[in-house]
Design a binder for these strands. Structure first.
Lengths: 214, 214
DNA sequence: CGCATAGTTGCACGTCGTGCAAGAATTAAT
DNA sequence: ATTAATTCTTGCACGACGTGCAACTATGCG
């Protein structure tokens, strides 16, 4: 969102190449199927060498989804504001992680089409989040620590609570993505469809279940 | 657990080979590190051809963990009893999935050592479960349908509730496994450490959080 | 014993992913 | 403008992964 120098040529080119590879990958997969597409083919259409492909993405699937792991990691370091509801805040955080794919905001129809055709790629997204679980629960735990309602508890308790909260959010996000993938009319990112709504539904559901079991 | 014929020689040999490969894999990984071990090396120690390795496990990691996908899938088809608590039942179900590794009950120290050394393999376990999510939530939803407290709801509502319940359970299992992996004294399977205890802790935690947010 | 079935093995082939070093492009400095 | 430093691209070589196929071997069964 901000760069001291006026965005050098190098940086622009890098972004451009990354985009080209991502789009080439997604298009080819939609045309010929995930397994039929090789990294050679993607590289050829994107006009880079095979070797360069691996300078941008570690695998075919990452390229297809346009995953930018460093952007995602950077997202975690950004200060995020906590408005008093850990579920909602965690939901937003996960949302941000999913969207962390460089600058491209366009072309997300491509992404959705791919995800609809190959749902197991969604699992891959979840894995990414799961891999960051330690850092995520750390962040949530810190929110709790700053919350007067939880400040009195022990560090360990808050960590445990954080993990549970994340578990619930992940389940919610998963449902949210499934709906998004099967919806044909929606625009924007996978989760842009009003996180607040999905979130509230889930929490209500959860409360209902717990209530009935009491 | 049961076979009509007196367990033919073939079946025994198969189990034996599977074990040999699994153990060879785990031992080698502990000795030389995950990346340093090749499938060739595993096959050699297990006294089978490389080609045979792939007749038993689709990948190195699966061999290291001794994952038996057909056993896991079969586990889902078994009728399971539902005693009125969907969380506990779901927890047990996931537990069964993790343990679905053929017949070997011994040698689980090996598995724990490996998991302790390479925590990302735990993520892989979670992925397996996530991949089965549709079938799992179906099962949980059916439990709810048979439960008078949930019988009045719509099918769709129960499915959503099922997914949330699973999300909570997964988060709990994850914590449970982390503890198990870092505990040096425990024996038995990864989750054998009294599922009920972990479960109750989690539910209590969850109730607490929701209570404070009310 | 002899047939049917299931499991093992070697071979060939294509894909994946990485280290390395030479060369080209961008940037910064003089 | 020229040069020097940095970064990026590319080709090459290499090992590992994973699968289809066909020949061979072992087990099960009548």
């Amino acid at each position: 969102m901000s760069t001291s120098p006026p965005v050098g040529l190098r940086e622009r080119k890098r972004e451009q190449t990354s985009q080209a590879i991502h789009i080439a990958a997604a298009e080819l997969v939609l045309e010929h199927g995930l397994d039929a597409v090789t990294i050679d083919a993607i590289s050829e259409r994107a006009d880079v060498s095979t070797r360069t492909f691996f300078n941008y993405f570690p695998s075919k699937e990452d390229a297809v989804l346009g995953i930018d792991e460093v952007a995602a990691s950077a997202e975690l370091d950004k200060p995020r504001d906590y408005a008093g509801d850990p579920f909602l805040a965690a939901f937003d955080l996960i949302h941000a992680l999913f969207e962390a794919s460089g600058a491209q905001r366009t072309k997300s129809e491509l992404k959705r089409d791919v995800l609809r055709k190959y749902p197991h790629l969604m699992v891959r997204q979840m894995v990414r989040v799961a891999a960051l679980e330690d850092r995520l629960s750390e962040i949530v735990a810190r929110w709790l620590a700053s919350d007067e309602r939880f400040a009195a508890e022990t560090e360990a308790d808050r960590l445990e609570e954080a993990r549970i909260i994340l578990g619930v959010c992940l389940a919610t996000v998963r449902m949210s993505m499934k709906k998004w993938a099967s919806d044909t009319s929606q625009t924007g990112g996978p989760l842009s469809a009003d996180p607040r709504t999905s979130y509230e539904r889930s929490i209500t559901t959860l409360r209902t279940v717990l209530e009935k079991l009491k």
